[in-house]
Amino acid sequence: MMTPIIKINNLKKSYENGNIKALNGINLEIEKGDFVSIIGQSGSGKTTLLNMIGALDIADEGSIEVSGYNLNKMKNLNKFRSIEVGFIFQLHNLIPNLSSVENIEIPMYIHNYSSKERRKRALELLDLVGLKDKAETKPTKLSGGERQRVAIARALVNKPSIILADEPTGSLDSKTSKNILDLLIDLHEKENVTLIIVTHDLNIAKLANREIEVLDGQIIDSKFQGN
């Protein structure tokens, strides 16, 4: 049996002095290289769970271990984020005054790469997402799908072991959504990276080989699917 890359035990998180219980005792294990979808209604706690896995937020109770790092005890969470995870958001969140290639270089500044090394790696990623000819194009001149491709390249640039995508196709039309999902699944398979997608779209959720449903901060269903 494979060692889980993510181990969560009785994880709890609340906001506004405990009035809002975003996570209420989550127990979860995810294997390395899995493709997992997390579904649930708005306010169910799925984004909070994703943020906990990516060390964007800290738990009130319980334990969470990702890629061997105990996130409850770790002080340099930014270091963990820069090495182990790549985020893709619903809105691409690209820096508007920088070109595509410069946006992809952003996560690399905190590592000791030279300018040339940064540029080389960013161009490789642009090629991988099919935008080599748009290297110097600024986000405002790109289509929605192209912007999300740049965001995917940015998420992969530091070679993370886990990709966390929060509604990555939420602001795209159906054709572009399909292309982006195809790209993500392709990269997940080629790079053997663990892919976790938060979505409220059941059709997208079914593409994953494991589907987790969250309601009121608790996992109410977890099923493996044969794809």
């Binding site: 990516g54 964007l56 930014n78 270091k79 809105l91 969140n93 952003i106 996560p107 905190i110 940015r154």
Partner: peptide
């Protein structure tokens, strides 16, 4: 939001 993204990608 941009600062949030920078933190998410690992900036200290």
């Amino acid at each position: 939001r941009e600062i949030g993204v920078l933190k998410a990608v690992g900036w200290s």
